[in-house]
């Protein structure tokens, strides 16, 4: 009886958890090879050759990775500083709830908020005008839809950093970093040594998998770069959807080829993160 339940569970796991992913991957692969799909007439490597020869795809990969990496590094650094400096204050009743509030803001809202504040007709531009720093809209710097992805990075940081603060506070408590630090002090360590040789290594060793996972999440982010990004280069998900959903039907296969490259990169990264260490998110 027990085995029967277990087998039914596994069947459902395969049906819901494995088959959709496999089906999506195979369909995208077949489409990119010209075997299925509108306007495709049979096996061809032409779409793959076009994608691999195009600089746009690699630019998009590099751009997405850079934006995600900058956002994660800044978020983690600030979050570590806040968690280590204000851990006692964040335990107070009202503050312990307030620091959870940013988790209630979805990406769409965060992007809209950044647009409202940093666009040329936004809040800060108005403030700059009222203070006499600018005389017209065009004098305000491009902070959204700009080449440096300023708006995207600001929004990523506002979305990700609160989560890291909560994570580091939790790890600080669970790993008894406070007790370890006291022990280090009693053995004669300086504040600097306690920070660099005790607190940071313990916290980062415990959370690096999750930090890497957030990098992967940001790499595939969609709505924030869709609203705040520029036309070229675009972040990966935006580029893939633009290719797949555009009116030129002959380009759809190329969109699926990029989707396959992205899926392989992400899957290899996840396998490297979780298979060798036998680590799951719950163990972090």
């Amino acid at each position: 009886m027990r085995n029967k339940f277990s087998h039914i569970g596994l069947v459902f796991f395969v049906l819901i958890g494995v088959i959709p992913f496999a089906a999506a991957f195979i369909y995208a692969l077949l489409y990119s090879l010209g075997i299925v799909g509108v306007l495709n007439s049979g096996f061809t490597l032409q779409h793959w050759q076009t994608v691999l020869a195009s600089s746009e795809v690699f630019k998009s990969f590099g751009y997405s990775a850079l934006v995600a990496a900058i956002s994660v590094v800044i978020s983690v650094s600030f979050a570590l500083w806040l968690a280590l400096k204000f851990r006692k204050e964040f335990d107070q009743k009202i503050l312990s709830f307030i620091i959870y509030l940013p988790l209630a803001i979805p990406g769409v809202v965060a992007a809209f908020f950044t647009f409202q504040l940093f666009s040329r007709a936004g809040f800060f531009s108005r403030l700059a005008y009222q203070l006499g720093w600018i005389n017209e809209v065009s004098q305000f710097p491009d902070l959204v839809n700009d080449a440096l992805a300023t708006g995207i990075i600001i929004t990523f940081i506002t979305i990700v950093m609160p989560f890291f603060v909560l994570l580091f506070l939790n790890v600080y408590k669970n790993e008894r970093v406070g007790n370890l630090s006291e022990l280090a002090y009693s053995l004669g360590a300086s504040s600097k040594q306690v920070l660099w040789r005790v607190s940071l290594p313990v916290i980062l060793r415990k959370t690096w998998t999750l930090i890497a996972l957030y990098f992967i999440f940001l790499l595939g982010a969609y709505e924030i770069p869709l609203l705040l990004g520029q036309e070229s280069p675009q972040m990966l998900s935006v580029l893939i959807i633009r290719e797949i959903k555009q009116f030129d039907l002959s380009k759809i296969s190329e969109g699926y080829a990029i989707a396959i490259i992205y899926t392989i990169v992400v899957s290899v990264a996840v396998s490297a993160l979780f298979s060798r260490k036998n680590k799951t998110l719950n163990e972090i």
Binding site: G17, V18, P20, F21, A23, A24, F25, Y27, A28, L213, I216, F217, G220, A221, Y222, L236, S237, I240, I241, I244, K245, G255, Y256, A259, Y262, T263, V266, S267, V270, S271, F274, S275
Partner: peptide
Amino acid sequence: LLTYFPYILAPVVFAACLSYF
């Protein structure tokens, strides 16, 4: 590990590849 693949993939890309089905 198999569970992580659909979890980590951008939902919009996953949906675009599944839309035919």
